[in-house]
């Protein structure tokens, strides 16, 4: 597999396997994460185009007193990638997420997204629920998924003035991306609805409802169904 390995810090490196956001590159990233396993790896962080590997430089130095820990780590990583050859990453789960669309409190920007794209609000919901989204990575906040695969016909730039508080569960659009806020945070996304599901699960391991590699589908629920769901959560 074609790849580049570069230092990230002096106790971490970054493996780059592509230059764009695509399911193919994502699968390569996932395959690498699944393949690597060494006691000196402290953490692996997959992203759109590669994987960061954090390592214990002291442990590597102890085992290989005459080598650079980075070079040792890079050599291991390279060998791992070569051994993957054409093997595919295991396919992720498919997860359905209920969303109550629209309304001044849940999806205040739904009318703006519709108008921006010359659609009705129902058409925006239709397009948002008809696709399967890939969880490329988690970041920005605990459990926040970077989803790919949104229909370009419902794209809209971020708000010029970010909101100071976006409630947990808010579903939004930023450019050609869609996402769900797991925590109350400030943010500039156009909000189109809200899910009763908690994406950040502080009491669980892993603490995130979604994982890199999962596929996500949204489905529209009424406010009554939303409230019932929330009670059960």
């Amino acid at each position: 597999m074609k790849h580049i390995i570069e230092p990230l810090g002096d106790q971490s490196l970054f493996i780059i396997v592509g230059e764009e956001i695509s399911p193919d590159i994502h699968h390569r990233v996932q395959a690498i994460v699944e393949e690597m396993d060494a006691t000196w790896i402290t953490e692996m962080v997959p992203s759109y185009t590669g994987v960061a590997v954090y390592y214990d430089a002291m442990q590597l130095r102890k085992t290989y007193p005459h080598s650079s820990p980075y070079e040792r780590a890079a050599a291991y990583v390279s060998a791992c990638i070569d051994s993957i050859a054409g093997r595919e990453a295991s396919s992720g789960r498919t997860i359905d997420i209920p969303v109550c669309y629209g309304g001044d409190d849940f999806g205040p920007d739904l009318p703006a997204v519709a108008e921006h794209n010359g659609l009705t609000e129902d058409e925006v919901i239709e397009k948002h629920t008809s696709r399967e989204y890939l969880v490329y990575m988690l970041g920005f906040a605990p459990g926040f998924p970077f989803l790919g695969g949104m229909d370009g016909e419902i794209a809209m730039p971020r708000k010029e003035e970010p909101r100071l508080k976006i409630p947990a569960g808010s579903v939004g659009i930023a450019g050609s991306q869609t996402g769900v806020y797991p925590l109350e945070t400030p943010g500039g996304w156009q909000l189109i609805g809200r899910t009763p599901l908690s994406l950040f699960l502080p009491e669980k391991t892993p603490p995130s409802y979604l994982q890199p590699g999962d596929k996500v589908r949204f489905f529209s629920v009424t406010r009554e169904a939303y409230e019932q769901w929330e009670e059960e959560e």
């Binding site: 971490s12 970054f14 992203s47 759109y48």
Partner: peptide, 10 residues
């Protein structure tokens, strides 16, 4: 730039 990992001191 496509979002990618950062670390302490980046």
């Amino acid at each position: 730039i496509i979002s990618e990992p950062v670390t302490f001191g980046t």
